[in-house]
Amino acid sequence: MFVTDMKPNPTKAWLMALIAWLIPGSGHAGQGRILRGALGGASVLAIFPCGVALGGHIYGLRDTSEGLLSSLFGFCDLGSGILWLGSRALGLAVSERPQLSTSEYGNVFLMVAGLLNFILALDAFDIGVGRKS
């Protein structure tokens, strides 16, 4: 399933970016960058549950609870890939918990997890097309 040769291939690069978005770190691991993939993926996978534990919640793309910013927050959260999909499907951390004083920190953790995974996916794409080693 994973690509191990180093020749630039745009189709495989897109596939790696998609896989990297879906499963944090897998884009690098699938292209032979095991340590980078493991470290990056573990970072995203650690930030996300920290955010949930702090009382953060996932914003929906059509969420309007905080105006237009909610959609932007939803886009940030979307970056977590399978974590975002799983949370939405299971109904985990989808409702606000304002009674927790750390809930805003939790929201930021969740958004940063998503944004970092977007960056990792873009990096995996760059490796796939040969822009980076």
Binding site: F109, L116, L120, L122
Partner: peptide, 12 residues
């Protein structure tokens, strides 16, 4: 948080 973000920034 700083540590985990630093890991990802360093990778990319």
């Amino acid at each position: 948080f700083a540590l985990l973000v630093a890991f990802v920034f360093a990778i990319v």
